[in-house]
Design a protein around this nucleic acid. Structure first.
Lengths: 210, 210
DNA sequence: AATACATTTGACCAAATGGTTAAATCAAAT
DNA sequence: ATTTGATTTAACCATTTGGTCAAATGTATT
């Protein structure tokens, strides 16, 4: 029985999720309208409630998915704790650039919604399975090995992530403040793949110091 | 006639603005309710519309004010283009720290709302009178004087601002990811006044290089 | 063909929300 | 005391919005 049903089922569900992602990311939870999601998916509004019981449930699905997208990239770049910090920096910056050039509005969406209901972060961190310990460990070993200067590992991570994310989070302002067009700004963002990498290396790698 | 009226007038207006700022910053435009603002101000809802004709008008007032708060601090730290880049870095980081320790939710509010309606940035930049040229000029001269390594001035500015703002923008996530309590995170943020300063100096100042 | 089951839809509802209005209140000027 | 003008309020309105439901439409199994 289920063969055709299952296929159609998946199709419709994906249709809804794609539409919901689009609308939620653009407008946020409060700004998003179930009707708009239905229109975007080309289906009836009641069908949304058939697949996902409420706006909140639908949103949660989208949001967890978006949240998960953030960290794994950097996680996988630690080579199970064996790699150098230099490699870690390169992999992390690259991973974020790859991710964000594809999904430029992911950061401001996630940040904005987390700020809207910060009480749910605990469960989110748990549900997403994010574990920053690996990265912290790599940095600690790098410091012991004198590859990296003495620095709070948390500072270093936050700096790397911040330098990567911030130009995307503040894209609308920055592009108009410092650039002639969106295209020019996109070029600039792409060039930061190297400039951020070097900026960080110069600051924390022993081999770059006197 | 106007003496008492004027005073009451100003009082009520300030009451409304304070309440509106509170609610808008916490919930954003879409999430904010006129009723909640009225309650927070301890007045009637219709009075909001008497002072500010619409939700949009009230919001615009709050938002322009918030937007203005962002840049002037760094502007004034350039000493009319005479100072060193080293001083600029210190002043900028300090200025942002001072601002953000007082108003931690300003960045995510501004960033979120700008993202909601990016088409209005042009007029915002104009209305706020923000002019980044001063800062760019100081950096350019710093490069000519061999105080600073060869770097795109826009990269440097964006890095400084990003390193300062990002930990506040992502505060809810970062504090739970890397710290045991909010208090511990606040201490960490305060300590970044120095660590960010040094992080940047090591990376771009010639005197810190080999 | 008939049954059983999941899927889809149009019509509808109750609550919330931004906004309006006419009346009431109040302080100052005459 | 009365008038005048701004300020404040309670009651109300139109619209929007998330959500429901019974009926309709498939689709596979018997």
């Amino acid at each position: 029985m289920a063969n055709r049903n299952l296929k159609e089922n998946k199709d419709t569900e994906k249709l809804i999720l794609d539409a919901a992602r689009e609308v939620f990311i653009r407008k946020g939870f409060d700004g998003a309208r179930m009707q708009e999601i239905a229109d975007e998916a080309g289906i009836n509004k009641a069908l949304l409630h058939y697949y996902f019981r409420s706006k909140q449930k639908l949103f949660d699905t989208i949001f967890l998915e978006a949240f998960k997208d953030f960290w794994p990239s950097i996680e996988s770049s630690t080579n199970n704790g064996k790699g150098t910090v230099k490699d870690l920096i390169k992999s992390a910056v690259d991973a974020y650039m790859d991710l964000l050039l594809k999904m430029p509005f992911l950061p401001s969406f996630v940040v904005g919604e987390i700020n809207r209901s910060p009480e749910r972060i605990q469960e989110l961190l748990q549900a997403s399975g994010i574990r920053p310990d690996f990265v912290l460990e790599v940095i600690k070993r790098g410091i012991e090995k004198r590859e990296v200067i003495a620095i709070d590992p948390r500072d270093l991570i936050i700096n790397i992530v911040g330098l990567s994310l911030f130009p995307f989070i503040s894209r609308p302002v920055l592009s108009r403040m410092f650039f002639a067009s969106e295209e020019e700004y996109m070029e600039f963002l792409a060039s930061r793949r190297n400039s951020v990498y070097e900026f960080v290396c110069r600051s924390v790698l022993v081999e770059y110091q006197s």
